[in-house]
Design a protein around this nucleic acid. Sequence first.
DNA 1: GTGAAAGCGCTAACAT
DNA 2: ATGTTAGCGCTTTCAC
Lengths: 339, 339
Amino acid sequence: MARTRAGTARRASITDVARLAGVSAGTVSNVLNHPSQVSDRTRTKVLDAIEQLSFVRNASARQLREGTSRTVGAIVLDIANPFFTATARGIEDRLAQDDLVLMLASSDEDPERESRFVRQFVEHGVRGLLVTPSRGTLETVARVRERGTDVVLLDHTSPFPDVASVAVDDVRGAALATAHLLERGHERIAFLNGPLSLRQCADRRQGVLAAVVEAGLDPGRVVVEVTLPSLNADSGSRAMAELLARPGPPPTATFCVNDFTALGAMRHLREASIAVPEQMAVVGYDDVDFAPELAVPLTSVRQPSHEIGWRAADLLLGDGEPEQVLFQPALVVRASSGA
Amino acid sequence: MARTRAGTARRASITDVARLAGVSAGTVSNVLNHPSQVSDRTRTKVLDAIEQLSFVRNASARQLREGTSRTVGAIVLDIANPFFTATARGIEDRLAQDDLVLMLASSDEDPERESRFVRQFVEHGVRGLLVTPSRGTLETVARVRERGTDVVLLDHTSPFPDVASVAVDDVRGAALATAHLLERGHERIAFLNGPLSLRQCADRRQGVLAAVVEAGLDPGRVVVEVTLPSLNADSGSRAMAELLARPGPPPTATFCVNDFTALGAMRHLREASIAVPEQMAVVGYDDVDFAPELAVPLTSVRQPSHEIGWRAADLLLGDGEPEQVLFQPALVVRASSGA
DNA sequence: GTGAAAGCGCTAACAT
DNA sequence: ATGTTAGCGCTTTCAC
């Protein structure tokens, strides 16, 4: 046991403060929670004692007594993903307004991890839960609600009318990107997508197909689908390699399900000396910070990520009816799609 | 008040479970915590009741009784900064091994915010605190330790022998970058730095000057310092504009205190039709994901950000003597510095 | 193997 | 204006 560690001495309790100040515990509590009810002299004595003992409230005891906590839990797919980073920051900013603390976890799209975090957060008595559900874990969410914890779905539309949600129209985002490529004259478009069990991927696929149909074309002829195991740059690079290795003429455009995938795809294209956008147009999704600054500035679909987090937290904390917010994405055209 | 909200019904307590199962609360507790001590028949009855009531432990009550919590608090400068994002993910990964929950906050380098979060986390009885201190808030940290909460400094060396820390040698990182530019023959080097009140900025400045002196040159003649109000791309862009507007011939190289600043600086250079690296070499810091994929791939200093978080959490949870870990950064040379 | 009871630190209701 | 008291939900002795 490390002798130098902190934490051997018991923390001062409200009773210790009361004893030192020569008052009752109730009075100390009043100084903390209803200062106006306490005389100046007493208040000063108590505050002195608090200072002297470095007293800090015990949130557990408080919460146990009050039945309500000052924490909110958020579960995103992966905090290292810039989209969720910005979302998390949005949540944090909203929570700060109400002096609430954020408990954060990444589910890695693993239902087991997700439900473990949900359980832990509920045990902690979070005031509410912001969750980006992974593959088919919506029942978990429903169950949590029944147990009495408010839930707002994050980056996911709500299938339950009484569960709030904040999402972006992914179908439309993908449709915007696809329509853009079709307008540019591309007749065969690769679609580097993630597993369809991910709602985002399924929706974006739907948007791609809808845009093709809308243009009066046959999706079966136009769209070349490639499914990636994970949505990072390396995976995008490998997928592009695999795509180019297929027999027959390759597509002339690629729509990637996110910017990291696009980053990887473009890396492979550069290594293979295939010109972007001349030989291969590329469109990404998320419009991350660096999209405009790439070797070939990347056309991408922008989502209001910070706002999504802020709004989700706001819905949770507000006392209105559960609302289902759907933000609209915007296509940002840059050189990679042949601007 | 929204009728549709969750949370009207009281959550089932251990007593409710006990009543339904026809046993005592103590037995339910044993089922939860010492299952082997309970007979099969009783255990089954209790588990059924738990299931039926959707019982979830109350962490506050548990923690109040036990005196120890299953949470760890982390305060970084800004979770939206990719360096801290990766660090946070490292922390999360280590905590997950011990089934611990992460409370996360961004101080925005504001000492007031920082101490508010510290107080909140300590009130919650976190098992420990991981903090990237902002301007001169080390006393806050010292005080917390005295109150009995373990602290590990994050991305900051420790001035106290008994306070653990995990940092990267920023002096050396900046020296590596500067030496590299000097070797390339640059005789005037701009240094886009943040406020010196930030430890990272002060250290990197020291590294820059040291490298110049080491090369037998006069820092006063070689280094052109520009101080940025904040470390984002826009700020870098403006600083570069300001630098170029100064009378006399501009420097031939720029070392930026982070990659986002470098991103902005390069954006302005492109807009001003100044070739990188021919007319202006650029080196960044952090080696973020996109550095290799920029219009001109960016030379940068790599830090083991995920590892920093992981290790910091590991030090906190371990029971060894407080250790002071110093990781070494590495220069990654790419086209922006004239490779 | 199980039950009864005490107490963690706090707040609010009530009493003075 | 201040003190007294009960009890939030849980775990852990200590009996039986």
